[in-house]
Design a protein around this nucleic acid. Structure first.
Length: 476
RNA sequence: CGAGGUGUGGCUCAGUUUGGUAGAGCGCUACGUUCGGGACGUAGAGGCCGCAAGUUCGAAUCUUGUCACCUCGACCA
């Protein structure tokens, strides 16, 4: 657009990080609290999470997942049982050392994730092949004592869901791991209009204790990656560490196989950074708490508020809000744009006389006049169009921000100069990942599932024979 | 954990150099006029200047300490 309509948002091009926090604050998604890194999620932000939660929960349950709730605290001894897992999480756990006025005999960790608790449960509940599988999930918050924090992207306490399943065979666990990753990817596409790249993490980037970690990676406006969901296959590692055994049909003890998978409030950060623009938040219609905002013009004139109320009634299949505060229309336009509601309807005396209303879509600012009798079907089509267009724009940005690198110089040039991902071959050694990170701050995002191209025969870094195509990028 | 920055009405900040009655704009409240891209008038409310100690007749201002938050790096959903 020609002019900048909103004064209090930093331009995205000037300072992307500042732009992000401006949006988060101005759209009233969160507030800072008196504890560093712990955010207050305000109604506008929490409503987003509730919609995400409702939709994901529905999709989980369609695949036979059951919800449970596990304790907030983990005894130190329990956390210690799986070596890689403790080592991964130890630096960022918060501890409770005192209960009431007395010091505790054994300190309690505030869960950073609940693998160990689920293992403890499964150890008690799984004895026979008849007890398998168990497909459990919980919605909860976890605590990780981060040093640097940012709203939604990295907070010390965050909301998420963590699924934990246990199976008789590796293959079944693997199937569940991939199934959940696909649910996440489909959810991002269908509900959030966010395209993602599905792939496998390298050993260096794997979850602590996992045999395989699969990820969906999304690309933000600034070309940085945001890991938006992960799904892990634990093999039987946790089962062995925790002594979980079941008797199979052969009457012999076996270790079962486990998975875990999660999506957090971080995904709200992705919505902001994939779709937002210089006027504020742009919400994909399906997740938007308010899909249509009606702004009456000259609302004190006879019949205007009545006409607005009637419009709301006609649009009862959608989430509609009337802004009848006594601010000026211009103010309301800007404010509702800031909040990202996908569609706006203006209705005033002139429209009422002509039997029409003015519709403006948030994503393109396109304005059109619609006959009142057509508004219901029009709204349905428009919200659908907005979703699809938002997805296509994000997809185009993702595709246009991918670069192929054959030589290491090319690679470094791409990573240092172009926002986006580099596609380059890799030998499989962690030394090369470390060196690439040291040279460029980029990390391996994933070994993509779909893309099997062979860009070159040798590793981008060391020149030894290449094993995998890897997408590389700077990440949040 | 390293480097930088900031703490003064709800918000953004001025005032600190050179100590002397706590300021502005926005927002808020009431009433009236307005209303198709951030309207206007009139009248009002609101501040132990982050916290603590010190220097001084006197501290938002000087000294010391402390806490919090923000930004950028190293580590992580």
């Amino acid at each position: 657009m020609a002019e900048k309509l909103v004064e209090n948002i930093t331009a995205m091009e000037d300072d992307f990080a500042k732009w992000y926090t401006d949006i988060v604050k101005n759209a009233e998604l969160i507030d800072y609290s008196s504890v560093k890194g712990c955010m207050i999620i305000k109604p506008a932000g929490y409503a987003l999470w509730e919609n995400i939660q409702r939709e994901l929960d529905r999709r989980f349950k369609e695949t036979g997942v059951e919800n449970v709730y596990m304790p907030l605290f983990i005894p130190e001894s329990l956390l210690q049982k799986e070596k890689d897992h403790v080592e991964g999480f130890a630096p960022e756990v918060a501890w409770v050392t005192q209960g009431g006025l007395e010091p505790l005999a054994e300190k309690l960790c505030v869960r950073p994730t609940s693998e160990t608790l689920f293992c403890d449960l499964y150890k008690n509940d799984v004895h026979s092949y008849r007890d398998l599988p168990k497909n459990y999930n919980q919605w909860c918050s976890v605590v990780r004592w981060e040093k640097t924090t940012r709203p939604f992207l990295r907070s010390r306490e965050f909301l998420w869901q963590e699924g934990h399943t246990i199976h008789a065979t590796y293959e079944e666990a693997e199937e569940r791991t991939v199934m959940m990753l696909n649910i996440y990817a489909d959810f991002c596409k269908d509900f959030l209009a966010i395209p993602t790249i599905r792939g496998r993490k390298t050993d260096k980037e794997k979850f602590a204790g996992a045999e395989e970690t699969y990820t969906i990676e999304a690309m933000m406006h600034d070309g940085k990656a945001l890991q938006s969901g992960t799904s892990h296959n634990f093999g039987d590692g946790f089962a062995k560490a925790f002594g979980i055994e079941y008797t199979d049909r052969d009457n012999k003890p076996h270790h079962p196989f486990q998975t875990s998978w999660g999506v957090s409030t971080r995904i709200i950060g992705a919505i902001i950074m994939v779709h937002g623009d210089s006027e504020g938040l742009v919400l994909p219609p399906k997740v938007a708490p308010t899909q249509v905002v009606i702004i009456p013009i000259q609302q004190k004139k006879e019949g205007v508020l009545e006409a607005a109320a009637k419009l709301k009634e006609v649009l009862k299949d959608y989430r509609v809000k009337i802004d009848d505060t006594d601010k000026s229309p211009g103010y309301k336009f800007s404010e509702q744009e800031m909040r990202g509601f996908p569609m706006r309807i203006e209705i005033g005396p002139r429209d009422i006389e002509n039997g029409e209303c003015v519709v403006v879509r948030r994503d393109t600012h396109e304005k059109q006049t619609v006959k009142l009798e057509d508004i219901a079907s029009f709204t349905g089509r428009l919200l659908e169009d907005i979703h699809n267009d938002m997805y296509e724009r994000a997809k185009k940005h993702l595709e246009e921000s991918m670069y192929d690198a054959v030589t290491y110089d090319e690679f470094k040039k791409i990573m240092n100069e172009k926002p986006g991902f580099a596609r380059a071959m890799w030998c499989g050694n962690v030394e090369c990942e470390d060196r690439i990170k040291a040279d460029t701050t980029a990390t391996s995002r994933c070994i993509p599932f779909e893309d099997k191209s062979e860009i070159s025969k040798t590793c981008i870094c060391c020149g030894k024979p290449a094993k995998h195509l890897v997408y590389w990028g700077k990440a949040y």
